Computed example of a mutant assay.
Amino acid sequence: MDGTPHGAAITAESLAVKGPRGWAFRDVDICAPPGSLVALEGPSGSGRTCLLLTLTGRMRPTSGRAEVAGLPLPGKMAAVRRVSALAHVPGVAELDAALTIAEHLRERGLLERRFAGPPLTLLRPRAGREAARARTDAALAAAGLDVDALPKGATTAVRELERLDALRLSLALALIGRPRLIAVDDTDLKLLDAEREQAWALLRSLAEAGTSVLAVCSQAPPGALVVPTAPDTQRPASRTTSAHARTGHGRKGATGALTETGRA
């Protein structure tokens, strides 16, 4: 071990994406150390998902600059994709409702051995299967998904899962590849208050274990580094600002500060 944190540091300066209908987001500044829980906070349509995809190397920025794990964007988008993983992004990375948990895990394991594992595992399939099983077990534990506790166990179809368990499965699948950055869209969508607290506690535990987390939400939890994507007029007034970042959206001069909630 060289002491280098596993998580990816995230920095951005005047980052922006413009599409056919105008700015998705603009003037985003971020400085998040490895192992941070970063909440991309704003209402639907405020550019949250575009920002998440840009910071994970899936969308090319129009202007500005950013670095993820020391890799510059947009110059090293492919490399950023290799160190990051999407847990749940509708239309981009989603669970198949017709597949079971076991089928999802088997498919992800095969992809990891084929494209991400050491070449020797292809020549030693038994060793490769054992290593994949260990990674899968570790990912399920980190995501807090107890498959055996479900009524149908691993044969439970995704359509039968509660929203929180589906989120746990999405996270587990992403964690199998041991990414340095994991991204989640619509984190607090359709969750009851107690479930929302559990979801944020889970993401916080992943960050504390060293994996950087980007999470899109309508309301950030205490302790997260907040990147607001809505204009100033649409943001909650009870935010404590810091000099880590600012974002603007939709009009010139609509800027705000990245904040850390729950701190005076």
Rank of each mutant, 00 (worst) to 15 (best):
residue 106 R to V: 14
residue 144 G to K: 08
residue 132 A to M: 07
residue 101 I to T: 09
residue 184 V to Y: 06
residue 166 A to N: 05
residue 195 E to F: 06
residue 122 L to E: 03
residue 191 L to M: 10
residue 67 E to K: 12
residue 59 M to F: 10
residue 1 M to I: 02
residue 22 G to T: 15
residue 222 P to E: 15
residue 136 T to A: 07
residue 52 L to F: 13
residue 157 A to E: 14
residue 190 K to V: 13
residue 249 H to A: 13
residue 87 A to H: 06
residue 79 A to K: 03
residue 255 T to W: 02
residue 213 V to M: 11
residue 133 R to P: 00
residue 89 V to T: 10
residue 242 S to V: 09
residue 11 T to G: 07
residue 71 L to G: 02
residue 74 P to L: 01
residue 82 R to E: 03
residue 45 G to I: 06
residue 59 M to V: 14
residue 97 A to R: 12
residue 259 T to E: 08
residue 80 V to C: 05
residue 13 E to L: 12
residue 91 G to T: 09
residue 23 W to H: 04
residue 154 A to W: 11
residue 5 P to W: 12
residue 49 T to Q: 05
residue 207 A to G: 04
residue 187 T to L: 15
residue 166 A to I: 01
residue 151 P to F: 15
residue 31 C to H: 15
residue 218 S to G: 14
residue 78 A to V: 09
residue 80 V to W: 07
residue 147 V to K: 11
residue 128 G to P: 05
residue 192 L to H: 08
residue 49 T to K: 09
residue 65 R to T: 14
residue 226 V to L: 12
residue 109 G to P: 05
residue 24 A to F: 06
residue 25 F to E: 03
residue 263 R to A: 12
residue 226 V to Y: 05
residue 35 G to Y: 13
residue 74 P to W: 07
residue 21 R to K: 13
residue 31 C to Q: 10
residue 5 P to V: 13
residue 212 S to M: 08
residue 161 L to K: 03
residue 23 W to S: 00
residue 3 G to Y: 04
residue 154 A to M: 04
residue 47 G to T: 09
residue 192 L to S: 08
residue 56 T to H: 09
residue 170 S to M: 11
residue 37 L to V: 02
residue 262 G to Y: 11
residue 261 T to V: 15
residue 45 G to P: 02
residue 141 A to W: 00
residue 219 Q to E: 07
residue 34 P to H: 11
residue 236 P to E: 03
residue 190 K to I: 06
residue 81 R to C: 02
residue 238 S to Q: 11
residue 36 S to H: 12
residue 193 D to N: 00
residue 66 A to I: 04
residue 193 D to R: 15
residue 112 E to M: 05
residue 147 V to C: 13
residue 169 L to Q: 00
residue 156 T to L: 10
residue 85 A to G: 02
residue 118 P to Q: 09
residue 189 L to M: 11
residue 180 R to L: 05
residue 147 V to Y: 14
residue 48 R to V: 03
residue 40 L to V: 14
residue 103 E to G: 09
residue 170 S to P: 08
residue 11 T to A: 14
residue 5 P to A: 12
residue 147 V to T: 06
residue 245 A to K: 05
residue 222 P to V: 14
residue 238 S to P: 00
residue 134 A to M: 05
residue 264 A to G: 12
residue 32 A to D: 00
residue 238 S to R: 10
residue 251 R to E: 08
residue 148 D to N: 08
residue 64 G to L: 05
residue 222 P to T: 14
